[in-house]
């Protein structure tokens, strides 16, 4: 729902005068607005974004007296949202020492890597050996088509066709399991 400045401001002024219905409409409209705001700026995603949305809604509530009825509402809102974003990351950085964080990231990275490796192995096993070998050689080990052909003792066009058919079969299988 696109919400315009005028509508938000009218709700906010209603809320300042004590109208709970206006206030609930306001907050309900702000939640997706803030989600989009943080979604555009934060890559870590998910929980972080929802945390910040909630923190900002609470700040809108506790600091609502600082809204000046004669000025733009969205400017006020996004100034709070920006402050909350900086505050959020400053705090989460303080809670995890930088060295440790780096260790965690590397560890997480390597587990996802080896997991991906296992998945690929699992998938290649389902293909005929010739296709699996051709894909492994050209796509995972970085050989050229000529090198793969020489290594496998088959023709270059055979390698290309094998890779093509193999990838097509894998794609079909992945789509099938995703469904």
């Amino acid at each position: 729902m696109p919400a315009d400045e005028q509508q938000l401001r009218a709700w906010m002024i209603g809320a300042l005068d004590g109208d709970a219905a206006d206030y609930a409409s306001l907050l309900r409209t702000l939640a997706p607005l803030l989600r989009a705001f943080y979604g555009r700026r934060v890559v870590s995603g998910g929980d972080d974004i929802e945390d910040m949305v909630q923190e900002t809604l609470i700040a809108v509530h506790t600091r609502r007296a600082t809204y000046d009825r004669n000025r733009a509402f969205t400017a006020w809102l996004f100034a709070i949202a920006r402050y909350k974003m900086i505050d959020h990351f400053r705090r989460s950085r303080r809670e995890v020492p930088l060295d440790e964080l780096e260790g965690t990231l590397i560890a997480e990275d390597s587990t996802t890597d080896s997991q991906a490796q296992r998945d690929v192995d699992e998938l290649l096993k389902t293909l005929p050996p010739k296709q699996a070998g051709a894909i492994r050689a050209t796509r995972l080990e970085g050989m050229s088509v000529a090198e793969a052909a020489a290594a496998g003792g088959i023709g270059e066009s055979d390698v290309k066709v094998s890779v093509h058919r193999g990838l097509k079969a894998l794609a079909a299988r992945i789509r099938g399991t995703a469904r």
Partner: peptide, 26 residues
């Protein structure tokens, strides 16, 4: 608490704010 519950709790907690509240408080 999910966001919808939070919004409910906040709007139940609403009290009116007087004009010039910032100036008064300062």
């Amino acid at each position: 608490m999910n966001t919808e519950q939070l919004i409910g709790a906040l709007s139940r907690d609403l009290k009116p704010v007087r004009r010039y509240a910032v100036g008064r408080r300062l």
